Lab assay of single mutants.
Amino acid sequence: GLPPGWRKIHDAAGTYYWHVPSGSTQWQRPTW
């Protein structure tokens, strides 16, 4: 699974990851 606080988001551009507490997003899968 993903580290705490991360969500996987799907949209028209593809899949990305959202860090809910900080509001940051990234294309790379977050690592622990």
Rank of each mutant, 00 (worst) to 15 (best):
G1F: 11
G1Y: 11
G1I: 11
L2A: 04
L2Q: 06
L2F: 03
P3F: 05
P3G: 03
P3R: 02
P3I: 01
P3A: 04
P4A: 06
P4M: 06
G5W: 07
G5S: 03
G5L: 02
G5K: 01
G5D: 05
G5H: 03
W6Q: 02
W6N: 01
W6A: 01
R7W: 08
R7V: 15
R7I: 15
R7Y: 12
R7K: 11
R7H: 10
R7P: 02
R7S: 08
K8L: 14
K8R: 13
K8T: 12
I9D: 02
I9N: 01
I9W: 06
I9Y: 05
I9V: 14
H10N: 12
H10S: 14
H10M: 14
H10K: 13
H10T: 15
H10F: 10
H10R: 12
D11R: 10
D11W: 08
D11H: 10
D11K: 07
D11F: 09
A12Y: 07
A12L: 10
A12F: 08
A13H: 14
A13N: 14
A13T: 14
A13W: 14
A13P: 03
A13V: 11
A13Y: 14
A13S: 14
A13G: 12
G14S: 05
G14H: 06
G14E: 05
T15I: 13
T15A: 10
Y16Q: 03
Y16V: 07
Y16F: 08
Y16S: 01
Y16N: 02
Y16M: 07
Y17V: 01
Y17E: 00
Y17L: 02
Y17D: 00
Y17P: 01
Y17H: 04
W18D: 02
W18E: 12
W18G: 02
W18Q: 12
W18M: 14
H19F: 04
H19Y: 04
H19I: 03
H19V: 02
H19E: 00
V20E: 14
V20T: 08
V20H: 07
P21V: 10
P21Q: 08
S22R: 02
S22W: 04
S22N: 02
S22G: 03
S22Y: 04
S22L: 04
G23R: 03
G23F: 03
G23K: 05
G23A: 04
G23W: 03
S24E: 13
S24H: 15
S24M: 15
S24K: 15
S24L: 15
T25H: 10
T25R: 14
T25L: 14
Q26N: 05
Q26L: 06
Q26S: 12
Q26R: 06
W27I: 14
W27Y: 13
W27N: 09
W27K: 14
Q28V: 09
Q28S: 09
Q28R: 09
Q28K: 08
R29L: 12
R29Y: 11
R29T: 11
P30A: 01
P30H: 04
P30I: 00
P30M: 00
T31D: 11
T31E: 13
T31K: 10
T31Q: 12
W32Y: 10
W32P: 08
W32N: 09
W32A: 10
W32D: 10
W32E: 09
W32G: 09
